[in-house]
């Protein structure tokens, strides 16, 4: 009997802890927003973080984008040629990249490549009392450390998503037109006829902006509140990747329902 009660207590504790953590994250987000002007004014802070988060993620984003586009072209061609409409491959690839795969896969890769690094860096700063020391010197660590990293994630995510989609379209062009031999003109013209700037490209950009906020916030939050031990930092890094991947996929569903449902009604 006491076992059951313990279980229920444990369940309650987990839920309450989770909710409290969510509240803490919300407060943390507000604290970041209060000082978001600092990295804009001290631009070199932002540039440094853009370099480490954005520029260093460039290679993995472009290469994976290209391979995703190439695979999409092969798989799409297999299905489309059954209906004798392999010319529409361009639309298929471009729409799936711009609407979904570009923002989502970029966010997942970014969480793994840059988010984890940010968490580990901030977590280690916390563990070695660098952040406390900064506080002692009357330097606001949230303005100096956290907000540039957060803003860098928000800024670089849409840029990386655009590059991912572009690389994907290029990869699909290589496979579809150069390798399989779909007509060059109809590949591009069908794509241009099927992709709308406002509806597809801007909505994709909004998605990646939201993902940038989510991944950036989770990365700095987990780092800032990581237990100051080696184990704590490592588990915080893992949590960053897991939580931001889940958050990205769930947010993607919500945003897709909001943006693209009832479109054909």
């Amino acid at each position: 009997m006491s076992n059951v009660i313990e279980m229920i207590e444990g369940l309650g504790r987990t839920v309450l802890n989770g909710l409290a953590r969510l509240g803490l994250a919300g407060r943390f987000f507000l604290a970041i927003m209060m000082v978001i002007g600092v990295p804009v004014r001290r631009f070199s802070l932002l540039v440094r973080e853009l370099y480490f988060s954005g520029v260093r993620s460039l290679l993995i984003i472009v290469v994976s984008g290209m391979f995703v586009g190439m695979v999409l072209a092969i798989q799409g061609y297999e299905v489309l040629q059954r209906f004798g409409s392999s010319e529409t491959l361009g639309v298929l690839v471009a729409l799936s990249l711009v609407r979904e795969l570009g923002p989502v896969v970029t966010a997942l890769l970014f969480a793994g490549r840059a988010g984890s690094a940010v968490t580990a860096e901030i977590g280690l700063m916390q563990a070695t009392d660098q952040i406390a020391a900064m506080d002692m010197m009357a330097v606001n660590p949230i303005a100096r450390i956290i907000s540039p990293r957060f803003l860098a994630s928000v800024v670089s995510m849409p840029l990386l998503a655009c590059l991912f989609s572009t690389a994907g379209v290029f990869g699909a062009y290589l496979v579809g037109v150069k390798l399989i031999g779909i007509d060059d003109g109809s590949f591009w013209s069908q794509m241009q006829a099927g992709v709308d700037f406002r509806l597809d490209i801007i909505n994709g950009l909004i998605k990646s902006l939201v993902f940038g906020v989510a991944v950036g916030l989770i990365a700095v939050f987990e780092g800032y509140y990581a237990p100051p031990t080696a184990e704590g930092v490592s588990s915080a890094t893992t949590r960053t990747v897991v939580t931001s991947s889940l958050a990205v996929l769930m947010l993607d569903f919500v945003l897709t329902v909001w943006m693209f449902r009832g479109l054909n009604g």
């Binding site: 853009l50 370099y51 954005g54 520029v55 670089s156 849409p158 840029l159 989609s165 241009q192």
Partner: peptide, 17 residues
């Protein structure tokens, strides 16, 4: 990085969209 990102957006807008 920022320039290539914006170029990619322009490419998407002009050539894909």
């Amino acid at each position: 990085f920022v320039a290539t990102g914006i170029l990619a957006l322009v490419f998407l807008a002009m050539k894909v969209g």
